[in-house]
Design a protein around this nucleic acid. Sequence first.
RNA 1: GCACCCGUAGCUCAGCUGGAUAGAGUACCUGGCUACGAACUAGGGGGUCACACGUUCGAAUCGUGUCGGGUGCACCA
Length: 579
Amino acid sequence: MNTLKHTLNKLVGEALSVVSGLTDCDPNVITASKPEFGDYQSNGIMSIAKKVGTNPRQLASDVVEKITADANPLIAKLEVAGPGFINIHLSDTALMQRASEIQNDTRKLIPTTNKVDKIVVDYSSPNLAKEMHVGHLRGTIIGDCLARVLERQGHEIIRQNHVGDWGTQFGMLICYMREISVLQGDLPTQLADLESFYRAAKERFDADPEFADTARGSVVKLQGGDADHLVVWQQFIDESLKHCQALYDKLNVTLSRKDLKAESFYNKDLEGVVKKLEEASLLSISNGARCVFLPEFTGKDGEPLPVIIQKTDGGYLYATTDLAAVQFRSFDLKAERSLYVVDARQSLHFQQVFAVGRKAGFASENISLEHIAYGTMMGSDGRPFKTRSGDTIKLVDLLDEAIRRAHELVSKKNPGLDETTYLEIAEKVGIAAVKYADLSKNRTSDYVFDWSSMLSFEGNTAPYLMYAYARIRSILRKQNSGLQGVQITSVSEVAERNLLLKIMQLSEVVDMVARDCYPNLLCNYLYELAGMFMRFYESCPILKAEAQLRDSRLALSALTAATLHQGLDLLGIETLEKM
RNA sequence: GCACCCGUAGCUCAGCUGGAUAGAGUACCUGGCUACGAACUAGGGGGUCACACGUUCGAAUCGUGUCGGGUGCACCA
């Protein structure tokens, strides 16, 4: 089943083509900007009229006449308005008809795509040398949401967690670990707090030149495949990954060990990358480093800007690894799209990697490489987020605080439940609030980290959406006749009709999110949907209505719940029966 | 110096590929629970969409310029 918008766009577009004589007219149908304009509006008539040189209102009324003559059952009424808009009012019976099709199988709320793509989603990708901090939240949950959305549409999703496990810091850490294990043995305890372990190693590194030298040597040995170093390294990586996985589980993020494609995975391909660039005659040596210069990239003072492939000392850089990854995704995984959910500050890096990748044949022509950039999390001082001491806040601390506050609130709001229930509710509400606070913002803008808005449970927040869901479930629990075969038969109240129409529009929003990768569109939608339910709830008695109306409203409520549930699931937010 | 992102209500942010009278949340003020859950809801005040010029039937949205903020630009990732 096509979306309403898609169907209308086609309907009006075809009529417009016939009337105007132009092929491929875009009628630009959008949801109506005001209720008095109907359900949808076509904005495209004016520009077409201009192209053909006719009066826009006349053209609009010709289009209306044509569509009316065809008597499409979906349309109740069309009006020409303003300079040449067409306002579209949908038929109530057609709406209820669509609803009943979906009720029988609520998976139809989101139709599956008719062209299945293989899509790589590269997200989260923390550096394993340190613990994840609040700055890692965005990429992790935006990527997870996109993966869920695309997967739900029926695409084949390959999650890739491109963790940093191979950089220079690991020499330092390995070196420090070897010291510790000789002195104290008990490594797991030492690694329980990665952050302080890193700090200790760094202090050692800064204080003792001899240690620093050994550390630099350790990187070379590690990357050269030295067995001893690899064992110690693996031990550290395993421990660090456990930390990450615990956070993913806590965040209800779908990443697992099998999605791991660490930097080290590409180590074996790096020489090949250099060779391939050489064969393509793209490499040149500048100040001792092997670089690719592309004319479209210039740096300070207009000098040509290199993509450095291999350092003077022979070491490889992240551009090298990323080129290997482009090749892997394009030719081994054979993906049609590769999404890189990475901080906007790396835009230039990805432009370069994509450009070199195309030029040197690391990417086939079939793959679309997309940097899904997101803005930086700022402190209240307008600078990239740091605490007063200059540290970042650990992600786990943010989550724990959210859960603590949710626990406090739920035990106050809903006394008399047992402690296990409180903990379960607090965990879900707290995590959801944090995720939603981030996902509901346009990903491209920088945003200010603020405890109170991130941990708010009122207004446009996840708890509001979850509350709407819990309310519906509560009503459904109170009726015991079952909803088998019960249909929506009334949309005569404005609140009923608005709610039903909104439900039908989930699929339109999901389409937009899948195309443009903006999860906040889905958040906006769900907030409006929940708001419409709240208004319906205030103005339309459900359980107290007479039998037929009661059933219709119960069915509408149930369908709302299903829509909220599916929408929230795409955001990676779980619902609760009670809260 | 060059490039990218941004500037919308006191604060935090939306604004659907140019549409009709610019919207939410929060904060503040006023109403609504013996009720299908008040984490809710109804209403009020609050705006030179940074500024200027341009494109056009129409601009917060597109273009140019100015101002202001953020970010990136050679061997870290």
